[in-house]
Design a binder for these strands. Structure first.
Length: 686
DNA sequence: CACGCTTATATTTTT
DNA sequence: TATAAGCGTG
């Protein structure tokens, strides 16, 4: 019986009957176990798997939870549970049931970078790029848009609060956003935010909501502290009628671990849950099973000073003698060496690399360390900050796939048409006009069958500059060969497109061979798919999150160290955790010291990092940085210990270790001073 | 009009 | 450290 392995509150949560349930689960209190057990118990109660909806933060988390539930029940039924992120579920739901909202089931999904590209197109067309005052860049526009939508705030307020330097352009920004919306509808594309917006619309449309709410008997949401206003609205909408019977809604979260303000997540969701869903039962999990007590004490000391509503006191049975260490290093280089040493030392003592992780605030914080690890032959995988899908050459390939899937996709055409030699932005634009990629305004009846631009491109000659004729012909041939999916599955299509892109890359990119190899990765990812559309959608909704996802685990029995941003480390745990760059300016990031709320979130970030550790925790602080991020000041400056650690009560929880005296031999050795010495010696000897 | 060059600029976290 | 705008050339 799986429930025997649960503690009291966990069991209460798992076996809870019907109605709204809020589980406030502190770090390491067995949240995943509890949620999995709840799914298992629902299944045992006879709820059909396909009538359970489990919303998690990542696809990985959903998989993990469902396979655990499966092990608990011993029946292979949990696989039929609707599991995934809000966005992935929206994607499925809207393809099934989006028609009443005017959605066609073959829409394609834009990620944030794609959205930014659309913004850019509009930005140029409206002549905003060439104005006297400089206009927000496309990434900024996309960010403002997303925040406005997700927080459900007025544009003006968002600008005031988060983008004051764009305030004066409010009118123009509004124009861009308006055009952006029209564009998306015409092109049959949805961005991340649309997925949620349309789901919400579906859940609240009077005639549809009954049907939609009727799909599920139970809805469970993990990491509720990191959901935003829009997502809370969706949940509220997922019930048949106003004031109808209490919804069977379970949310699990920890306000102390809310770290996604950037996605407009708001702790208010979890704080106000009981008011929003009357008759909520609240269960709090406080027994920590993860960390030793010295580690837990240090974590508690860090979070103690934040103002949280759901006050929890985590406790543990796990005695442990070793206090976490706080290691001051002379500089970043020494930090690298110290971390490597500590990692290897742990491994000597029997903690494999896989049971260790190095955590940091921003993806690039591990750059130097990666060099050092490579030098020392320590294998690692890195989570977070992976820009596979953002690399220009991968986008090139995806643009081609997307045209095949959705020939109305403007940005993809714009990109693809510029691939052949001799075609630049101007010609590409003209070609798109010729092909009528931009449909005759949205006013035109959406259902009238229009000739697809792709059909036109493949069957009719287009006027191109002399120099580009050959290249365009090659593009046409490549697309034409990939058209029939029955004949050529997605992986095969990528293979065919690679043949076309080979010469293109050779001409355009420095390291063409390496870029072509990335397309092999893409092909490998596609092998398990039969439908191109599904492949593209899942790739955008669940992009490879680590270098390991791409390369596959180096070797099955090989051991590797995990490097991860703190954000990507959410929900994970390791025997030994190394937190690097614990300096003010890094954590809190000096990008995030704008207001009180941002700083508080940075504190929670530190808390999340510390609470990932089971047995050993090491925090590293370089005293000196040589390259200040934005340095007009002197090239090297002294750093302060992160303000979240720099309090007596906190420091007292750590064993503080002064910078090791540098072994001069070690330093000089690497820099090739031996050759200088040899040179000098040569001067003197004779 | 494309393309290669130079110079300015802005750098978090992620579905 | 990348990328994006700006400029000159073919």
């Amino acid at each position: 019986m799986f429930e025997d392995s649960l503690n009291g509150p966990q069991r209460a949560a798992a076996m809870f009957g019907d109605g709204p349930l809020l589980v406030v689960a502190g770090a390491g209190t067995g949240k995943t176990t509890t949620l999995a057990a709840r799914v298992a118990s629902l299944l045992e109660r006879g709820i059909p798997a396909e009538r359970i909806l489990l919303l998690t933060f990542s696809r990985r988390a959903a998989r993990e939870m469902l396979s655990r539930a499966e092990r608990m029940t011993g029946v292979g039924e949990a696989g039929r549970v609707w599991g995934g992120t809000f966005h992935a579920v929206a994607n499925r739901l809207l393809r099934l049931a989006g028609a009443p909202l005017g959605l066609r089931p073959d829409f394609t999904v834009l990620d944030q970078a794609d959205g930014a590209d659309v913004m850019n197109l509009i930005r140029q067309e409206l002549g905003l790029s060439a104005r006297e005052r400089r206009f927000p860049r496309k990434e900024t526009l996309a960010a403002i848009y997303s925040r406005t939508v997700n927080a459900g705030e007025r544009l003006g307020d968002v600008l005031d609060r988060h983008y004051p330097w764009c305030r004066d352009e409010a009118e123009r920004i509004r124009d861009v956003f308006q055009a952006y919306t029209v564009r998306k509808r015409d092109q049959n594309v949805l961005d991340y935010d649309d997925l949620l917006l349309f789901w919400k619309a579906l859940a609240w449309a009077p005639d549809i909501r009954v049907r939609l709410a009727g799909l599920f008997d139970h809805v469970l949401v993990d990491e509720y502290q990191d959901t935003n206003a829009l997502q809370a609205d969706i949940l509220e909408g997922m019930r048949p009628l106003e004031g109808s019977a209490p919804r069977n809604l379970t949310v699990v979260g920890d306000d102390a671990q809310s770290i996604y303000g950037s996605r407009a997540a708001t702790v208010r969701n979890i704080l106000e849950f009981p008011e929003r869903f009357p008759e909520t039962t609240v269960i709090t999990l406080e027994q920590n099973y993860r960390s030793t007590s010295p580690i837990l004490e240090a974590s508690n000391a860090v979070i103690a000073r934040s103002r949280l509503r759901h006050r929890k006191t985590l406790w543990t049975d796990r005695a442990g003698r070793r206090r976490p260490t706080l290691r001051t290093c002379l500089d970043e280089a020494q930090q690298c060496r110290t971390v490597c040493d500590a990692v290897l030392e742990h491994r000597e003592q029997g903690v494999p690399l896989r049971a260790q992780a190095v955590l940091f605030r921003a993806a690039h914080h591990s750059d130097l360390l990666e060099v050092e690890l490579t030098r020392r032959n320590v294998p690692f995988v890195k989570y977070g900050g992976l820009k596979f899908l953002e690399a220009a050459h991968v986008k090139d390939a995806l643009a081609l796939l997307r045209i095949l899937e959705n020939p109305w996709d403007e940005v993809s055409w714009f990109r693809a048409l510029q691939l052949p030699d001799g075609i630049g932005p101007a010609t590409a634009r003209r070609l798109m006009d010729d092909l009528a990629v931009r449909r005759a305004e949205s006013a035109a009846a959406p259902d009238t069958e229009v000739r697809s631009p792709l059909t036109s491109f493949l069957s009719e000659p287009v006027a191109v500059p002399h120099a580009a004729v050959e290249g365009v012909q090659a593009l046409r041939a490549a697309l034409g060969d990939c058209l029939d999916e029955e004949a050529l599955p997605p992986a095969g299509q990528i293979d065919r497109l690679r043949a076309f892109l080979g010469p293109v890359f050779a001409r355009r990119y420095e390291a063409a061979a390496a870029r072509l190899r990335d397309l092999e990765q893409l092909e490998a990812l596609a092998t398990s798919y039969e439908r191109r559309g599904r492949f593209i959608a899942e790739l955008t909704l669940d992009p490879p999150s680590s270098t390991g996802d791409l390369a596959g685990p180096p070797l099955l029995d090989e051991d590797w160290l995990v490097l991860s941003t703190i954000h990507s480390a959410k929900g994970l745990e390791w025997d030994a955790v190394h937190l690097i760059h614990a300096a003010d300016g890094m954590i809190p990031s000096d990008m995030a010291t704008g207001d009180e709320d941002e700083i508080e979130e940075e504190r929670r970030l530190v808390y999340v990092a510390l609470t990932r550790a089971r047995d050993a925790l090491h925090v590293y602080f370089p005293m000196r940085y040589y390259r200040r991020p934005r340095g007009l000041e002197d090239p090297h400056s002294y750093a302060q210990l992160s303000r979240f650690l720099d309090a007596d009560e906190v420091r007292a929880c750590f064993e503080q270790i002064a910078p090791p005296t540098e072994d001069p031999g070690d330093v000089l050795d690497v820099t090739g001073s031996a050759s200088v010495d040899a040179f000098l010696a040569g001067l003197w000897s004779d």
